[in-house]
């Protein structure tokens, strides 16, 4: 990982050292890197204590059968076998992948569309209003979003009231209590939250696109659709990559929205890895299996996000 190391070096130190070779410069280089270490030390300390140490501890716990209190017994890879073979746990992983559709694909799509619209009316007040409205869900805590939406999706909630008012009584149901609709309903909550983030990122990306490109395209006779695919989309590729990465991680590692809205029910239809890890660790007190599942989840996230980064950032990075 060269990136974090190079950003952590104090600005200018590399350049100075390189431009003035010799003893003095070398001394300065040593001093500079000592200073660099001193500067990153506090952060590194916190990082290793609060991030690395728990990861290592989880990796260790995952190899034991432990209830969290009494002495653990060695379990080898049994916990991993359980995670990858129990239908309930595998089902949770499947649900997480389905959530990618709602937490990532849908919001990125909507945000692209909305950003494009907002860009075209950028000067008007409506654009500011639209931006604010679409971004507000980002400001609301996830737990509050979950509660608001579980009311709206309840049997007497807003969604069903609207359906009934237009005569779609047959479609009205307890959205979060129905095996077929619970996961999509949770997905809708996630999509609602994520659109704002993607929109702001993509809008920021669009402002960086040189306006003369659009002018040139228009002279060449390109319509709005052609403009979008030939100029806008390639122009915001980086932002889409960031959006996709952040939202895919939030889908795979989802917890809060599901915990508030359905707690994994009905049945196991909305069970996700984050929730199951919580149940395993704090209700079943299977710290070993919970740790193994979290290590598997971490590996899964990395396995999905790394190729995604390569794919979306392409040669530019």
């Amino acid at each position: 990982m060269p990136a974090p190391a190079s950003t952590a070096s104090p600005p200018g130190s590399g350049g100075t050292a390189r431009s003035r070779p010799g003893v003095r410069a070398r001394r300065r280089r040593v001093g500079g890197s000592l200073l660099a270490y001193a500067l990153i030390a506090p952060a590194a300390l916190f990082y290793s204590f609060f991030v690395l140490r728990p990861i290592v501890a989880s990796a260790q716990y995952s190899l034991y059968d432990w209830n969290g209190v009494t002495t653990a017994t060695w379990a080898g890879i049994d916990n991993y076998v359980a995670v990858l073979s129990e239908p309930k746990l595998v089902g949770a992983i499947g649900n997480a992948f389905e959530l990618i559709l709602y937490f990532s694909v849908v919001p990125v799509g909507i945000a692209l569309f909305a950003a494009n619209l907002i860009r075209s009316i950028a000067a008007s007040r409506l654009a500011t209003a639209a931006r604010t409205v679409l971004f507000i869900p980002q400001v609301i805590p996830l737990v509050a979003a979950g509660i608001i939406w579980s009311w709206q999706l309840s049997s007497d909630g807003l969604v069903n009231q609207i359906l009934r008012s237009v005569g779609l009584d047959a479609a009205a149901r307890a959205w979060l209590g129905d095996f077929d609709t619970a996961l999509p309903a949770v997905g809708v909550i996630g999509a609602w939250v994520q659109v704002g983030l993607c929109l702001v990122l993509i809008l920021a990306g669009m402002t960086r696109i040189d306006a003369s490109l659009y002018e040139a395209a228009r002279i060449d006779g390109a319509g709005p659709v052609r403009e979008f695919f030939s100029i806008t989309l390639p122009g915001v590729r980086q932002e889409i990559a960031v959006c996709a990465t952040v939202t895919v991680i939030s889908a795979l590692a989802s917890f809060d929205i599901v915990y508030v809205a359905t707690q994994g029910g009905p049945g196991d239809s909305t069970l996700v890895p984050g929730l199951q890890i919580f149940y395993l660790a704090f209700f079943e007190r299977e710290i070993g299996t919970a740790s193994a599942f979290s290590i598997v989840l971490m590996a899964l996230v990395i396995a999905v996000v790394l190729p995604l980064q390569r794919l979306l950032r392409g040669r530019e990075s």
Binding site: A44, S48, L52, R53, V56, A57, A59, Q60, Y61, Y64, W66, N67, G68, V69, T70, T71, A72, T73, W74, I287
Partner: peptide, 15 residues
């Protein structure tokens, strides 16, 4: 640092 952390954590079974 990482291996030190592992070493610290791994010397005994937890609990």
């Amino acid at each position: 640092a990482f291996s030190a952390a592992i070493g610290l954590a791994a010397c005994a079974p937890p609990g």
